[in-house]
Each structure stands twice: as structure tokens, then as C-alpha cells.
């Protein structure tokens, strides 16, 4: 049977995770309200050959998207199809209008940004980065 120490350690870890989540949620909102830019939802996954990033930017058109990438980061900046207003109480403003999506997305492994390919369908941006060659192929004798 697990000891009391084990349970309190699990509780401490849970509290730490909650705190990290809350810090992230607050920093996203602070960024959005101070910059007037929305932080889009995104998803990153890896295959043996590629790092694939999907970014949800409803209403965005191809010509309004700016993408830049390094070996380990993707910079996304896009004009919203239409400005988005949010009414809320608060000290700084009661109504806030957002006109852009903006996000710096860290990539989980080193990629070749020169050979990246991007597509946009229904406001869903997909970028495929070939992974940088990490090693040498080993043939089995």
C-alpha cells in the first residue's frame, strides 16, 4: 500500500502542474489583451521524417498570413478575416478588439526551414517541416 508521503508527493505534483497551467493561461490572456493579438490554438506532432504544425486561425486568408521559421521556432502572424470584439469587465478596457493572430511556436526538434511546405484550408494552417538529418543510416548486415 502506498505511504502517506507518496500521496502528499502526488498532491504536491498536482498542485505544481495546476500552477503551471494557470500561469500559462494567464500569460496567454495578458499577451492577448496587451497586444491586441489573439493567440491561436496549435498542435505539433512529429513523424520520423517531419515536424508537422497545425494552427487554427478561423477566417484567415492565405494572402494575410506571414510565416517565418528558424531551425527550432515558427513565427506566425496573420490578419483576422474580420476584427473580433470581446466585451468584458476590467480596469484597462470594457471592450477589446482583436485584429491579428500571432504566435511563436517552439518546434520539438531541429528542422530544415528552407524546405518547409505550408497549406491553408478553412482557416486551418498546416506546415510540414522536414527534420534536419540527425544521424547516419545504419544498414543491417
Amino acid at each position: 500500500m502506498p505511504s502517506e508521503d507518496f500521496f502528499s508527493e502526488v498532491e504536491r505534483m498536482e498542485r505544481r502542474m495546476r500552477k503551471i497551467s494557470e500561469d500559462i493561461a494567464r500569460s496567454i490572456k495578458e499577451f492577448e489583451y496587451s497586444s491586441g493579438c489573439l493567440e491561436p490554438l496549435y498542435e505539433v506532432y512529429e513523424t520520423p521524417e517531419e515536424v508537422i504544425v497545425s494552427v487554427d486561425m478561423p477566417g484567415v486568408k492565405k494572402e494575410d498570413v506571414s510565416l517565418e521559421a528558424t531551425e527550432d521556432k515558427l513565427y506566425v502572424d496573420a490578419e483576422c478575416g474580420r476584427s473580433i470584439s470581446v466585451r468584458k469587465w476590467g480596469v484597462s478596457s470594457q471592450e477589446k478588439t482583436f485584429k491579428r493572430f500571432r504566435k511563436v511556436i517552439p518546434l520539438p526538434s531541429s528542422v530544415d526551414p528552407e524546405r518547409a511546405k505550408a497549406s491553408l484550408k478553412g482557416g486551418l494552417l498546416k506546415i510540414r517541416f522536414p527534420r534536419k538529418k540527425a544521424g547516419t543510416r545504419i544498414d543491417i548486415e
Binding site: 489573439l38 478575416g81 482557416g123
Partner: peptide, 9 residues
């Protein structure tokens, strides 16, 4: 749909 996708983020 576009508005909902933003609202529900």
C-alpha cells in the same frame, strides 16, 4: 463557425 472557433478557444 469562424466566430465559434474563436470564442471556444
Amino acid at each position: 463557425a469562424e466566430k465559434l472557433r474563436v470564442q471556444y478557444r
